[in-house]
Design a protein around this nucleic acid. Structure first.
Lengths: 226, 226
DNA sequence: GCAAATTATGTTAAAATTGTGAAAATTACT
DNA sequence: AGTAATTTTCACAATTTTAACATAATTTGC
């Protein structure tokens, strides 16, 4: 699963940068717009904006207007940044279908917490559970593996095996360890079975297959060269 | 908007945990009490309990007594968990001012739905009722599913199942997870039942049936290809 | 370089899982 | 009660995955 995209609209670039930094740190992708017009262009241009953070006070097209425009076509969650304690604003906003208010000044922590709460509510998607290494992205919840952005099909065991490798990258893993972790503890079959799975995994991974290295006389190791 | 606090009163810790888990997932804050006395202490100690979920059967102070005590001071919404089909209970309860009954065993989904319904009624909290993904529109309140704008008929279970898939789109869902969410928690039947429902669902969904993908060795996944 | 040990690979059989249709059981509706 | 609709179970076919094995290729230590 790809990272969720958040559109941040504010005329102050410092504020945009602040918000962006914290969202990026929390593993979201951020798109910026410096005024209402640009915001609408971007929003309707790309279709995968998961959430919009809107400053109320902006020159020309203000936050309310942007909100109204978006709402007439989309139910995307909207968070509004308002000046402190302006209750009239809040009332107006709820009628427009704003999901959440955050009054300035706010702590970035609060911002991130609210964002996550809303996205959890609407999308039920966890932003955290993506393992990434050497151009491979793995989402365990979705059971998806992307190599250079392209999805590849793995069987259950292959997936588990790759997950184990990625979670222990850089470590030399004996066949015994691998068996005990990826197979059931009561599996007493041939340890060479692992070889077969490694073979298939490598071939399905194309060039990235070389990241699974053979540790002679021992087992295997997933190693990222960087 | 702060999360609403719900007090869950039950002498069985497993039941408390079950209920709590689902409420927390729906973004509520949960406070637990393991008997009537503790419940009253908590309720009158903190003043921001938005809703109370009460088990009828409890040692010492039972649910009715707790309900009576609370009602003499507060109009907070109360949901009662009762044994199945005990009508005398329900009668007694309505006189005491119980807002809603849920008879055990219940599906956690039902619980959350009732909680949201009540809070919406009393608190004017608006939850979005239309889910949309991959050309499928679902109105849970009206129990209507549109595929490419055309309505299709689904049975109750089929509807619930599709709703669960859509609410968890992109996630690989094990049969166990599906059973625990869409079926009652005390359903111990064959997990393969799900397969049959998936089959019917897929066929009723026509071409869109392919959005429900099989995750081999695991379960199913609703995935929108965009 | 050579022999021994170890790993890679292709093939194939066995095992596990899912799809499907039909029957049985349950529930809802007259 | 009787009928229809829904849900569940079951058996078997179809599919996919897994494990095993034989043989080729590679590495290591001498």
């Amino acid at each position: 699963m790809e990272r969720l995209k958040i559109l941040v609209v504010d005329d102050e670039s410092r504020m945009r940068k602040l918000v962006k930094d914290f969202l990026v740190k929390s593993n979201y992708e951020v798109v910026e717009a410096e005024d209402g017009g640009a915001a609408l262009d971007i929003f309707f241009g790309q279709k995968d904006i998961a959430l919009v953070i809107l400053d109320v006070m902006m020159p020309k097209v203000d936050g309310w207007e942007v909100c109204r425009e978006i709402r007439s076509y989309s139910k995307v969650p909207i968070i509004m940044l308002t000046a402190k304690g302006d209750e009239r604003d809040e009332l107006q906003g709820f009628q427009l279908g704003v999901d959440e208010y955050i009054s300035k000044p706010f702590s970035p922590k609060i911002l991130v917490a609210r964002v996550e709460a809303i996205l959890r509510r609407t999308n039920q998607v966890n932003a955290e559970e993506v393992i990434q290494a050497g151009g491979i992205q793995m989402n365990k919840a979705a059971h998806i593996v992307l190599i250079d952005g392209k999805q590849i099909d793995l069987s259950y065991k292959e997936f588990e095996l790759l997950a184990y490798f990625m979670e222990n990258k850089g470590l030399a893993l004996s066949r015994e360890k691998i068996l005990n972790s990826v197979w059931n503890y009561d599996y007493f079959g041939d340890a060479r079975t692992i070889d077969t799975h490694v073979k298939k995994l490598r071939s399905k991974m194309g060039g990235k297959g070389e990241l699974i290295k053979t540790v002679w006389g021992m087992g295997y190791k997933f190693e990222v060269n960087d």
